[in-house]
Design a protein around this nucleic acid. Structure first.
Length: 451
RNA sequence: GCGCCUCUAGCUCAAUUGGCAGAGCAUCGGACUCUUAAUCCGCAGGUUCCGGGUUCAAGUCCCGGGGGGCGUACCA
């Protein structure tokens, strides 16, 4: 509006009337005239009411802050230069029966902000902006993938067998079928079934559920983008990730040079590529390999207060050492390549290094943003990996997988060479909105119920 | 889970060593014809998160419980 009427001089009336609706945010009564600030989804504009021309002037000045009103009137600029709508007609659309928060301080109590997000959203501009940005990131992601031939699909949230990730699921029950079901921890195995079926490029923006602790980086339900691309390997997926993130940064921030948590962050492609072992040596000062004696690995872990379980093999211990010493130190984007087979039951064996798989994680600002690999397509090897998981489960690992016979049957029909990817969209939104808590990018984060 | 911090009016915050629970905004009543968090006058507003305890006296100290935050553990 300010652009449309920029030619209007102070004190001048435009001769044009407009109708708009929104929420009354402020009111300044001035005897026989009154000013108000009306806010809608696009911004704010001043209302200008006169006793002699505004119908039911007393009713207008009796409105509560927070009331929704509709206004019709002429566009003008006040003597003090504020673009305004003269209130020639008005109607109260909805009453705010609860008191408006402090009009200067708003609400800051995070408990109230999360529980009553409806108040947070209309009082705090930056909150509205963050969620607008989230929405733009989601739609830009869809557009970018669709432009590259990816098909968006929806797969079940109820899983008879939880799979596709190492995590504890939520359980539920279907009455008519008398069947226990799990809320999905990942859409992975269903999406790869679709690739078996000939959908060569698929993705899903999936709400997934993991029955684990809460933190500034974890909500029990979160949004994961997963995609699968036939005839691709993890190198292809790395290029896809760095290009997608670069594109999103430019799309929503206008630049790839960001500031996050007070530090500079450069997201432009290409990202650094290093193997897990290289980074562990570089940042952790730990030079080991899968043939390092277990006793040595155990000692290295214990020196760093990492709890070691009996069933942990060298691969698990190396991953633990990396996560403890190295991952938090990685700031600029880096692809951490090549993970131990032991901790990656769905990844394909590395083409050059026995005992390792072609898997990478994208680490940005010390946070895991994505996890991807060249998919394991061999049904016999997959059965072998599942069986190893069953052993781990029986040894007490509650996050271990169980055998999914239908998934194995699908692989027996042939999964083409495929690259797969999972991106934690909430964490990506955090980076692009400068949020340090996942609760700032989830509208209704999981909380204990009010009493 | 564990550790630390926090909770006072609808909102934002005060309250000295343990000594009558307060202010601003919002609400309600009044004044005001160009305000910008308008201003001015007035009224009202409280289970100080809950339950115990110590004390002549507890918002304040002690014990237990609850909500939230941060860190840590598990994880993406």
């Amino acid at each position: 509006m300010e652009e449309t009427w920029s030619g209007l001089a102070d004190g001048e009336e435009s001769g044009h009337a407009v109708s708009l609706a929104g929420r009354l945010m402020l009111r300044r009564d001035q005897g026989k005239l009154a000013f108000g600030d009306l806010q809608d989804a696009t911004g704010r504009v001043q209302l200008f009411a006169l006793e002699r021309s505004t119908p039911d002037f007393d009713g207008f000045t009796g409105l509560h802050l927070g009331d929704w009103i509709g206004v019709t009137g002429e566009v003008l600029r006040t003597r003090r230069g504020e673009l305004s709508i003269r209130v020639d007609e008005w109607v109260r659309l909805a009453e705010a029966r609860r008191s408006f928060p402090d009009k200067w301080h708003g609400i800051s109590d995070v408990d109230t902000r999360f529980r009553q997000r409806y108040v947070d959203l209309w009082v705090n501009d930056e909150v509205r902006e963050a969620f607008t940005t989230r929405s733009r990131i989601m739609s830009a992601t869809r557009r970018w993938l669709e432009d590259r031939g990816f098909l968006e699909v929806e797969t079940p949230v109820f899983h008879p067998i939880p799979g596709g990730a190492l995590a504890r699921p939520f359980t539920t029950h279907h009455n008519a079928l008398d069947l226990d079901l799990y809320l999905r921890i990942a859409p992975e195995l269903y999406l790869k079934r679709l690739t078996v079926g000939g959908m060569e490029r698929v993705f899903e923006i999936a709400r997934v559920f993991r029955n684990e602790g809460l933190s500034t980086r974890h909500n029990p339900e979160f949004t994961m983008l997963e995609l699968y691309q036939a005839y691709a390997d993890y190198h292809d997926v790395m290029e896809l990730v760095e290009q997608l993130v670069e594109h999103l940064a430019i799309e929503v921030c206008g630049t790839t040079s960001l500031t996050y948590d007070g530090r500079d962050l450069e997201l432009s492609a290409p990202w650094r590529r290093r193997t897990l072992l290289e980074l562990l040596a570089e940042h952790g000062g730990i030079e080991v390999d899968l043939d390092t004696p277990r006793s040595e690995l155990v000692q290295l872990c214990e020196e760093r207060d990492i709890s070691v379980k009996d069933g942990d093999g060298p691969g698990k211990l190396i991953q633990e050492l990396y996560e403890k010493t190295t991952e938090p130190e990685l700031w600029d984007p880096v692809f951490v390549m090549d993970y131990p087979k032991e901790v990656s039951p769905l990844s394909r064996d590395h083409r050059d290094y026995p005992g390792w798989v072609e898997r990478f994680e994208g680490i940005v600002a010390g946070r895991e943003v994505c996890n991807a690999f060249t998919e394991l397509v061999d049904p016999d090897e997959q059965r072998f990996r599942f069986n190893a998981q069953v052993v781990a489960k029986e040894a007490g690992d509650e996050e271990a997988m169980i055998v999914d016979e239908d998934y194995l049957r699908a692989l027996e029909y042939g999964l083409p060479p495929t690259g797969g990817l999972g991106i934690g969209m909430d964490r990506l939104v955090m980076l692009l909105t400068g949020s340090t808590s996942i609760r700032d990018v989830i509208l209704f984060p999981t909380l204990r119920p009010e009493q």
